Simulated scan of single mutants.
Amino acid sequence: MSEQPPLGIIEGFYGPLWSWQERRQVVTALAPHGYRNYWYAPKADAFLRRRWSEPHPDPVASELADFAGFCRVQNVRFGVGLSPFEVFNNFDQPAKTALANKLAVFDQLGVTNLAILFDDMQSDTPDLAARQADIIHWVAERSGAEQLTVCPSYYSDDPVLDRVFGQRPEHYLEHLGRALDPSVQVFWTGEEVCSREISPGHLQRVSEALGRKPVLWDNYPVNDGDRMSRHLHLRGFTGRPAANRAYIAGHAINPALQPTLTTIPAITLARSYRQGPGYQYGQAFQRAAEEVLGKDLAQQVSADLLILQDAGLERISSERRRALTECYRRFDHPAAAEILKWLAGDYQVTDEMVQTQ
Rank of each mutant, 00 (worst) to 15 (best):
L343S: 04
N254L: 12
R50L: 13
Q299E: 14
D92Y: 08
R287K: 07
P55I: 10
G166C: 11
V301I: 15
S207M: 13
W39M: 09
H333N: 03
P16Q: 11
R330V: 07
G190N: 04
Y279C: 04
R163E: 09
A29T: 14
S195K: 07
R235D: 08
G294P: 02
R230L: 11
Y35Q: 07
C194H: 13
S272N: 01
L257H: 04
E191Q: 15
S123D: 03
R163Y: 04
D310E: 12
L103H: 02
A246M: 09
E338W: 01
N37W: 14
P265C: 03
L180G: 05
M353H: 12
G294W: 11
E141V: 08
V150F: 00
Q122M: 14
R163C: 02
E22V: 01
R50N: 09
L216T: 10
D124N: 12
R36F: 00
N89D: 12
I116D: 04
G294E: 05
L7M: 13
I9W: 03
G190T: 02
F285N: 00
Q4P: 00
A44S: 15
A336T: 07
D45Q: 11
G225W: 09
T263D: 07
G144R: 10
V164K: 15
F165Y: 15
A29W: 04
Q132C: 09
N37G: 01
A252C: 15
I116P: 02
R329K: 14
A115L: 13
T268H: 11
I248G: 01
Q167E: 14
Q283T: 12
E319N: 10
N219F: 02
N219I: 01
A44V: 04
V139A: 07
F91W: 13
H231W: 09
M121R: 10
V27W: 03
Q4E: 12
I267H: 04
L161E: 02
P55S: 13
S183N: 13
Y273I: 05
L261Y: 00
M121A: 14
P94Q: 01
G294R: 11
V222Q: 06
V26K: 01
E170N: 07
A115K: 05
E314P: 00
S62L: 12
V292M: 12
A249T: 04
G250W: 07
T112A: 08
K102W: 00
A323C: 04
L305V: 03
L232Q: 11
L324M: 14
L30C: 06
R72P: 00
F237N: 02
Q275Y: 03
P159Q: 05
G110N: 08
Q355I: 07
D181T: 10
Q25V: 00
F118C: 01
D346N: 06
G166V: 07
D58F: 01
G12P: 08
A242F: 11
K43E: 06
T356Q: 13
W342G: 04
A46K: 06
N219V: 02
Q204D: 13
L306G: 15
E174T: 11
S19C: 03
G12A: 15
G239M: 06
D45N: 08
Q309H: 13
